[in-house]
């Protein structure tokens, strides 16, 4: 009967598959990367170019998950089922280094790949924003200082915060806490804005820290856990919304959103390189030293990523929106990778 043959075939292939499963478990020849969604486009471009330029290595695979998510995966341990590189849009935290060490990841090589600006953008048919850190703080805080006292945030329109801002409802879409961008946003915008008040300066350091980062909970501040496209969708749905984006995302969607100036500076590649635009930050990736020499091409990929050909001026990564490192920095970082200088 044909049925019997069919059954035999199916059973045989099931057995064969399960055997090959066991046989394949050791060893991996593809570099596995995960982490920051800000670094993801750059990392993907670098991976693709690497795969195309090095015939002997496979193209690295790049996942997202946010800086914190990536570093958590990174610190899960050593071995082929853990990732080799974590992308991060902020420096690794001491607690994360501890977590890594607890799981046997002792050799963490930090690689800075360049810079990125964080911009505030609104829909092109919305008002023009000229923001100061103070304005952003007043828009998102739970409590604001007024005449020496802390009162619940009374502002519902930007024009109430400052006459120069557009008369539109406050609706701020900021990155969720899984994103490294959030930390930079708080550190470079919210906290400086908050510290500009005499009332806050009078507080103790701990109290001031808590006070500055407390967010209003009336729905005017939305935390976006996903990518910038989600923030863009929010802007498309609500005309008044102001979103936080990476400069490169804005550059690719200039026909849909327009940027706000921060402290009077327009965010551009030049103003960020010159250090005039206040909300910029370095981008990193972290290489698992234990995997160098085990996963083929790991060292070469790290070196290629920061090479002038891949991420210097006129390179594919610059075209993708990365702000290149200064030449001195680049040489230093390359030296660190070659020497496997660990944290």
């Amino acid at each position: 009967m044909t049925l019997n043959n069919l059954t035999k075939l199916v059973l045989a292939s099931a057995v064969a598959l399960s055997f090959s499963t066991v046989a394949q478990t050791s060893g991996r020849d593809t570099i596995q990367v995960a982490g920051s969604s800000t670094v993801l486009p750059f990392s993907s471009v670098a991976a693709e170019e690497f795969g195309n330029n090095f015939a002997q290595f496979k193209t690295p695979v790049v996942g997202s998950g946010g800086s914190s998510g990536g570093l958590r995966q990174f610190c899960q341990g050593v071995g082929t089922s853990t990732i080799d590189i974590a992308n991060s849009s902020r420096p690794i935290r001491p607690a994360e280094v501890e977590a890594c060490k607890a799981n046997g990841v002792n050799q963490i090589v930090e690689v800075k790949i360049g810079y990125d600006g964080i911009v505030f953008a609104s829909r092109i048919d919305a008002g023009d924003f000229k923001l100061e850190p103070k304005h952003v703080f007043l828009a998102q805080a739970a409590q604001v200082p007024q005449n020496g006292k802390m009162v619940a945030n009374p502002y519902t329109r930007w024009s109430q915060i400052d006459k120069s801002l557009p008369d539109q409802a406050i609706l701020l879409a900021i990155p969720g806490s899984n994103h490294g961008t959030r930390e930079v946003y708080e550190e470079k915008v919210v906290v400086p804005g908050c510290q500009s008040f005499a009332e806050v300066k009078a507080l103790s350091k701990d109290d001031a820290g808590k006070f500055c980062l407390a967010m209003r909970t009336d729905g005017r501040v939305v935390e976006i856990a996903g990518d910038y496209t989600e923030t863009l969708a929010r802007l498309q749905a609500q005309k008044d919304a102001v979103g936080v984006f990476g400069l490169s995302f804005y550059e690719a969607n200039r026909d849909r959103i327009k940027v706000a100036t921060v402290s009077g500076v327009v965010p551009t590649l030049d103003s960020i390189i010159a250090g005039e635009y206040p909300v910029s930050r370095p981008l990193f990736f972290y290489v698992k030293g234990e995997h160098i020499g085990v996963v083929p091409g790991l060292q070469q990929f790290a070196e290629y990523f920061v090479s002038d050909a891949a991420s210097g001026f006129g390179s594919p990564l610059e075209a993708a929106g990365l702000i290149p490192l200064a030449d001195g920095e680049r040489a230093e970082i390359l030296k660190n990778i070659r020497a496997k200088k660990t944290l």
Binding site: Q24, Q32, V33, A34, L40, S44, G51, T59, V61, G63
Partner: peptide, 17 residues
């Protein structure tokens, strides 16, 4: 299970990313 990664090559076997 990590399948939302960016993969720039066509997998050659069920074990490739």
């Amino acid at each position: 299970i990590g399948m939302k990664s960016f993969v720039a090559s066509v997998p050659g076997s069920p074990f490739d990313q």
